[in-house]
């Protein structure tokens, strides 16, 4: 496990008698004084058997200082990467002389997109993540090289597209042709990987709110991705986070972009159905 990050809050919680170790807070997240973010929501129907009674954004588990960084885009370090994404959006690349803007005009045309990914792609006959769709466009419609799955340019573009849906409810489909991938992701979520034999559920379902060394465990929701982490001072992708969490169980992890992580992303996204799209968010 990786226990490097330490917050002053964690220290306080451990030393002040009477402060509960177990609770996420009750603050309200409104971004730029206008966009209200749903950070707590009822359990999606498919989670009836889960060991929890509501779903919560990871924002509730962070210190007031970290939370504040996400409440104003001028303070949110993730917004720099949105700017970089906007530049990429308008840049012509590849053999066809196109940029994203050539087909999609303004990024605001992407409103609603983040909220429903990953989703089944009929033509490809597979569940696609937003990153896979971005690369599809680059290859098929621009004649450009795909971005590396977990790379800086990819996360910039994801951040730009995500921002357009901020405040909209996550609503990924788990039935129909997506059902198989979803079931596979669910199985992974409850598999105890590695020499420490820990599943996602061990930490994020059974123990959210508790401290694991200096870390205040959240529900491991992905509605806030991409996530700017103070710890590594960059925007982080969903698959990058999955990779780190599995590595921390002393396991042989999976690769970003792998079929396994696509399935896991669909499943974890569905555990957040009803929370708002929040990215780019700020975490520690």
């Amino acid at each position: 496990m990786n226990f490097k990050s330490m917050t002053a809050v964690a220290a306080l919680m451990l030393t002040l008698p009477g402060v509960s170790l177990a609770d996420p807070d009750d603050d309200t997240l409104i971004i730029n004084g206008e966009t209200e973010i749903v950070t707590k929501a009822p359990l999606p129907a498919h989670m009836e058997d889960a060991n929890m009674d509501q779903i919560m954004s990871g924002w509730h588990f962070r210190s007031d200082e970290t939370q504040a960084l996400e409440m104003d885009d001028f303070d949110n370090p993730g917004m720099i990467f949105v700017d970089a994404g906007l530049e990429q959006w308008n840049t012509v690349e590849g053999s066809k002389g196109n940029s994203c803007a050539s087909c999609h005009e303004d990024p605001s045309s992407m409103k609603g997109v983040r909220a429903v990914y990953p989703k089944w792609d009929e033509k490809a006959g597979e569940v696609q993540t937003l990153a896979m769709q971005i690369n599809d466009c680059r290859e098929a419609n621009m004649g450009a090289e795909p971005y590396k799955y977990d790379s800086g340019p990819m996360v910039n573009m994801e951040a730009l597209i995500t921002l357009q849906s901020r405040g909209m409810p996550v609503n990924v489909a788990i039935d129909g042709p997506a059902a198989d991938a979803w079931a596979k992701g669910k199985e992974m979520y409850y598999t105890r990987y590695g020499q420490l034999e820990l599943s996602c559920a061990n930490c994020h379902e059974d123990n959210y709110g508790n401290m694991i060394r200096a870390d205040h465990l959240s529900q491991g929701q992905i509605n806030g991705f991409p996530t700017y982490r103070l710890k590594n001072a960059k925007l982080n992708t969903v698959h990058g986070r999955f990779k780190g969490c599995i590595r921390d169980t002393r396991a042989h992890t999976f690769n970003p972009g792998s079929e396994e992580f696509v399935a896991l992303e669909l499943y974890v996204a569905s555990r957040g159905n009803g929370l708002s799209v929040e990215g780019p968010s700020v975490r520690n």
């Binding site: 105890r192 590695g194 020499q195 034999e197 992890t253």
Partner: peptide, 24 residues
């Protein structure tokens, strides 16, 4: 239990090479 087994070496799912993320 969630508590790891500190003196056991068999029957793990995808055991890694310590915390490298690589296979053992």
């Amino acid at each position: 239990t969630m508590m790891p087994s500190y003196y056991r070496v068999d029957d793990y799912v995808r055991p890694g090479n310590a915390f490298t993320g690589k296979a053992a």
